[in-house]
Amino acid sequence: MTTTTATSPVLEASGVTMRFGGLTAVRSVDLTVNSGEIVGLIGPNGAGKTTFFNCLTGLYIPTEGKVSYKGTVLPPKPHLVTNAGIARTFQNIRLFANMTVLENVLVGRHTRTKEGLWSALLRGPGFRKAETASRERAMELLEFIGLSHKADHLARNLPYGEQRKLEIARALASDPGLLLLDEPTAGMNPQETRATEELVFAIRDQGIAVLVIEHDMRFIFNLCDRVACLVQGEKLVEGTSDVVQGDERVIAAYLGTPFEGAPGDEEVAEVEAAESGSGAQSTTSKEGSAQ
């Protein structure tokens, strides 16, 4: 995973379209992630970001278009995609709640170990060796995200921020070449967000490309080498943080376009009066101004 040069593409999605009946959730999206890159995917709620993620990871089979990882077209099955080298986290945390922290990461090792039922029943030396190796690797990852002291806790008992981190560790356990993070900082406070930022940089430094969906713009623009904006299923713009930040269409998609006729002076004055009035006056006038 570290052998690839800085320019070779890890993920190439071309013309990915996902239709649910008559609804087109994702329309002909092209996206490339190069090795050693952190790419952000932003867009208002319902823009199709998670659907696009699901198309990439095989949870959905795209209606049209193809997704390839390091030059080979990905099979349309989630476990085969993971096996190929793409790991993901989920927007709403999906840990194995009643397994311990260590076991969660061990499950992530599944694709990189081969021991089947027979070797589990016979318990030969190969089984023991593989099991110890898995445990060591898992503990390494827990060390990396800073949860090794909680290895024996049940995942459900971790605080929210640590659950998010554990999900990342679980994804990293499959030794991916590309990590897809679906809103990794949702529900986090500023310190936690900053810690996650550090974590993502550290992951990138290990040679793993990262594609991240996020609503926190400061987080995205700090982190990403490139950002793509998805609106109503279509890719609106792609480029460096500055380009996307300055793009009027992106701002419009998030904040809405101004009216054809901009609000007149009298309306502005009215609003200002109401606002200043409500600050000083009693609650009854506040109610009045609210109307």
Binding site: F90, L95, F96, A97, E103, V107, H110, A120
Partner: peptide, 26 residues
């Protein structure tokens, strides 16, 4: 023996959350 192994963990993972388990390569 089966429960305490790679295959047993994948069983429990499936019980806990099948979608997440498949996304982990199971």
């Amino acid at each position: 023996r089966a429960a305490d192994s790679r295959i047993g963990r994948s069983w429990i993972a499936i019980r806990e959350d099948e979608t997440a388990a498949t996304a982990m390569g199971i």
